[in-house]
Design a binder for these strands. Structure first.
Length: 619
RNA sequence: GCGCUUGUAGCUCAGUUGGAUAGAGCGACGGACUUCUAAUCCGUAGGCCGAAGGUUCGAAUCCUUUCAAGCGCGCCA
């Protein structure tokens, strides 16, 4: 982490320097330690917007000027001559009005450190900042009573990429999907299933009012029937039907209607269980097709097993976190920062969704997660205070309950926003989108913006533009490198390419595998520093050096889009390099460039992996 | 009504603890293929940072007010 290290060193060096200067009096105590510390904290080291200024820039002199009561330019001069000039990383240091200190990253430093990429390979970019702390990231968690729509796709892409970023920063990450398989929605879904199921056996019942779309329910029932056929043979009799006589005919149900009739005729809970299972498999398959896999599928219903609910209520009562009012049990949420108190147990004795929330959080704490990250849509922002209140009340440090609110995806068609409504059937399913646009483009597109940016998803544009999507630009860079390697391999095998053996000891036998080639080249060569002549080459190398900082920043900010942005710039830098310089020049291999290109491929592949986007070798 | 979020180029968006002349991509326009793949490269045009005040050496960024958009405020999940 080049920049991160320099940042740290800058403030340390400045503090040391100030200790020796007039800002600190003779007894060694700063005159106003708080102001001084505050000021040192304000010092930044960043990449300036204008490249001409340099690679890095610091405002240190400007920040310190009011405290030191000296002109910024004078301070800048001192910092330059006493601190930055001693850094091997810095070159061409200059001072610009009103007091910025700018410098470039020295080419020697870059070249000497390229070896790190070669050695770390697929770990390049990773750091140990997370100290293996257990982090749980919960995302998507869509109800298993329907398929995933476009919006879920965004959380899937963001959540998975963020998980990868945390892993790259040394955290122990668990990706978790919370399945709401308990409560009224599940009950309704089960009822719908049972109704259609009964129909399949000629038992007509009234389809539940306000039920789930029949088309969806029927597709699930069909699958249930197929599975039943498989296990029970062709003469299957409907294992969820309760009102069967011994001869296989049905008892008549009289005087009952609607859900009562259904529950008398069929085992609703059992068919619901199987139906939910089928839905979860479908959801998992959709997610898998966009490269998202969860470590844990957590069932809400499991929270109610082994009298856990009753025990939890007892515990809450014992700790005086709840009280009774109007026959219901209330959680003192307002006391812990929420807007108002919340009902945990309804007057009828039924637990609310909030009861599950409490038990789930206690459960997470019990699994020793130190940090809980919830990725929720903007329509759930009312949750933040609620979750923090639970944390505070149950003793989980609320600072480690992070709720990331993602803005919603608006579907736009012909310039007009389409209202996404499940009832009206205007929902655009994720599977359809994957089919039309492809997983790579979706993954890139959904992480290309900040969590906090509301996204307009223009369907027509997505389809039409798929060919010039930025993701292809990036993948093309990777494919071009693959092609170069292929050419080099062939050229050497057929003795048509000449190269300096002192510079590049290539293994005699190369397999077709990319990784093997790199592996063999690096190990046999013990990576000698490449000779790079031009600025374009040095700029590309510099870009490679900055990758670990990007991985770190993306984690600190919890923003995967920073990886997208970096990838695009890296690809651009590569394409520019490719256009202006040849790796295979006539019949001669430029080994320095060849190495540079191999390293570029590693970084491209690493970053693409974080985003869950493929790195094709041919396009 | 109260609360959360957003408003930056024609479009989609960066600009993250205040920094230098507000940046990319797409679209538009003009160039470059005898080439390691032109899915590329080079160039041009495009802006009152929603509006108005304030804070200071310095504001797209912080504060106040205001306008507009999205979302949320159940003993639903």
């Amino acid at each position: 982490m080049l920049i991160q290290n320099l940042r740290k060193r800058l403030s340390e060096d400045i503090y040391l320097f100030l200790e020796k200067s007039s800002a600190v009096n003779k007894s060694g105590i700063p005159k106003k330690p708080d102001t001084l510390n505050d000021k040192v904290m304000q010092i930044t080291l960043s990449i300036p917007k204008n490249r001409e200024f340099g690679d890095l820039s610091t405002n240190a002199a400007l920040v310190l000027a009011p405290v030191l009561k000296k002109s910024p330019l004078k301070i800048a001069e001192e910092i330059k001559n006493n601190i930055i000039i001693t850094w091997p990383e810095a070159a061409d240091i200059n001072i610009a009005a009103p007091g910025f200190i700018n410098f470039f990253i020295s080419r020697d430093y870059i070249l000497n450190n390229l070896e790190a990429i070669a050695l770390q390979k697929y770990k390049y970019g990773c750091n140990k900042h997370g100290k293996n702390i257990k982090v749980q990231i919960e995302f998507v968690s869509a109800n298993p009573t329907g398929g995933l729509h476009i919006g879920h796709g965004r959380w899937a892409a963001l959540g998975d990429s963020l998980s990868n970023i945390f892993i790259s920063n040394g955290f122990d990450v668990c990706r978790e999907y919370y399945i709401n398989d308990f409560g009224s929605q599940t009950a309704k879904f089960s009822l719908c299933l049972a109704s259609i199921y009964l129909k399949a056996f000629g038992q007509d019942t009234e389809y539940p009012q306000d039920g789930y779309p029949e088309e969806l329910v029927k597709s699930v029932v069909d699958q249930v029937l197929n599975e039943e056929k498989l296990t029970d043979g062709p003469g299957f009799k409907g294992r969820y039907i309760k009102n069967k006589k011994s001869d296989g005919s049905f008892k008549k149900i009289t005087g009952r209607a609607g859900s009562d009739a259904i529950s008398e005729m069929a085992d609703i809970d059992a068919i619901g269980l199987q139906g939910i299972g089928i839905m979860i498999k479908r959801i998992a398959a959709s997610l898998k097709s966009m490269n998202v896999e969860f470590d844990e599928w957590f069932y809400e219903s499991s929270l109610y097993k082994n009298a856990n609910f009753e025990k939890t209520i007892q515990q809450l009562e014992k700790e005086k976190l709840v009280y009774r009012k109007d026959d219901a049990l209330w959680f003192k949420a307002a006391l812990h920062g929420d807007e108002k108190d919340r009902v945990v147990v309804r007057s009828g004795g039924e637990p609310t969704y909030f009861a599950s929330d409490i038990m789930y959080l206690i459960n997470k704490a019990g699994r020793r997660f130190k940090k809980l990250i919830y990725i929720l849509g903007a329509d759930h922002h009312g949750y933040i205070k609620r979750l923090h209140a639970i944390g505070k009340a149950t003793g989980f440090d609320e600072r480690n309950i992070e709720v990331i609110i993602g803005q919603l995806v608006r579907l736009v068609k012909k310039g007009k926003a389409v209202k996404m409504s499940k009832r009206k059937g205007h929902v655009y399913m994720l599977d359809d989108l994957i089919e039309e646009v492809g997983s790579d483009a979706i993954r890139y597109f959904f992480t290309a913006n900040s969590f906090n940016t509301p996204m307009d998803f223009d369907l027509d544009l997505a389809k039409q533009k798929s060919n010039q999507n930025p993701v292809y630009y990036i993948q093309y860079a990777h494919a071009r490198i693959a092609n170069i390697i292929d050419k080099v391999r062939q050229g050497i095998a057929e003795q048509e390419i000449d190269f300096d053996r002192n510079d590049l000891i290539l293994p005699g036998k190369w397999s077709d595998n990319f990784e093997d080639i790199f592996e063999a080249l690096i190990s046999e060569n013990s990576f000698k520093i490449p000779h790079l002549e031009s600025n374009e080459e040095a700029d590309l190398a510099k870009m490679l050096m900055l990758y670990p900082d990007v991985v770190y920043d993306a984690c600190i900010c919890r923003e995967p889009y920073m990886i997208n942005q970096y990838l695009y710039r890296l690809a651009g830098q590569f394409h520019y390099f490719y256009k202006h310089h040849r790796v295979i020049d006539g019949k001669k291999l430029n080994s320095g460039r060849f190495k540079l290109v191999l390293l570029t491929r590693i970084v491209l592949a690493n970053a693409l992996k974080i985003l869950g986007v493929g790195a094709p070798e041919r396009m």
